[in-house]
Design a protein around this nucleic acid. Structure first.
Lengths: 216, 216
DNA sequence: ATTATCTATAGATCTATAGATAATGC
DNA sequence: ATTATCTATAGATCTATAGATAATGC
């Protein structure tokens, strides 16, 4: 996958656009129904791309949908990078991540639906967000802020709770999302070993400003 | 669904057996590949049942797979009932549930794989385990053992963590499962508001004996 | 007589590819 | 000249049903 090489000429740009159209269509389908048995014809139509073009880019539906999930995960990670860099207290980072995720169910619903359906199976992946989360958790333990525990177990706890927050946002839109996220973040910080008072305070620190970047 | 009426005569028994064969085949397929696009023909073969029989019991694959998930959830709940009745401290109940679930990935792998793939979408269902878990969490809050919080948020936290424990057991079979479950249970109890020392103690209480019931 | 299962099959749908068409590189 | 896209289609596969077969109820 030459995802590193940016398109040089018009050929490559057009090719990349067709591929992106297919990936975006797959993301929409994943978010709306999750039905990966949908026909390649329907996918191509959704992408507004000739039917045969599919085979210029992917060998199977599985391959396409995997690419779509990877694409969503990457966008999720990018948003985290944009919005959360500069926070170096691991506890605050966890809390901010929870609250940012809750807000993203409103601003990036399609992306979050994909995560909702496919996130669990990437929790212990060695690419994407998982390794970074692991590192932050280990950092928190090393600095004495978190109670020592097997890193994979801590990752499970935090990741599972985050996914269930996303599920909660979609399953119970009647609840106040930001409040739920804050409460859950506070709970997660207690889980990681922060004293109750600290957990309460850290979970309620204001999120960093969106800077000049658009809407979130 | 006349799931309440037990089969009276040989006709009804045979009919129920055919249906069960289809459901069990669907459970195996869900556990092994999760590929719900598999053909009805392949399902019928797997169940060792004539192809046309499928339509005597289900109108679509979706209907069959939903029944298979419901079947798995029910078995999960039944096992909890058998093994955890008699525990009335909500904190101990949560901890025992975590450790029992971890063990079940070894003793009931197929069942737990189904849960792994489909559990999240049933977290806030109004049938099955969710309502009971909600009740226990509310009980814990009422008795002062747990810190007060919106019940659905507590359910998200506990359920999400449990699902990620199941994921962890399958993704990292190299880790000691019972130890991971105990550690995670301890963390969840802290999350719910137990003091660290209490959480540690409760999470390590011995599980109730399997009584005369077979192997777990 | 009734009911469920099984086998066979028509018709629909889907996949993968071949060949024509259109756009750009050099 | 090269390359990607698009259209058309052959062949494979899948679904849903019709009708035959087998088993039980009464």
């Amino acid at each position: 996958m030459p995802s590193s090489a940016p398109p040089r000429n018009r050929f490559e740009r057009r090719r990349a656009e067709t591929r992106q159209a297919l990936v975006r269509a797959a993301r929409r389908i994943l978010a709306e129904t999750g039905d990966t048995a949908v026909s390649i014809q329907a996918i191509a139509e959704r992408a507004d791309v000739g039917f045969g073009s599919f085979y210029n880019h992917f060998e199977s539906k599985t391959e396409l949908f995997d690419a779509a999930v990877a694409d969503a995960l990457e966008e999720f990670g990018r948003t985290f990078d944009e919005r959360l860099t500069g926070i170096d207290d691991p506890a605050e980072l966890v809390a901010a991540g929870f609250r940012l995720s809750a807000r993203m169910t409103g601003s990036h619903p399609e992306l979050m639906q994909v995560l909702r359906r496919r996130g669990l199976e990437h929790l212990h992946s060695d690419r994407g967000l998982a390794p970074r989360a692991l590192r932050d958790l280990e950092l928190g333990v090393a600095s004495g802020r978190f109670t020592p525990v097997e890193p994979a177990v801590a990752l499970s706890a935090v990741g599972g709770t985050l996914l269930s927050l996303i599920e909660l946002r979609f399953a119970r839109p009647d609840l106040d999302g930001d409040e739920a996220a804050t409460d859950l973040a506070e709970m997660v910080l207690r889980m990681l070993g922060l004293p109750a008072a600290d957990a309460r305070e850290v979970a309620r620190r204001p999120l960093p400003d969106p800077d000049r970047s658009g809407s979130i």
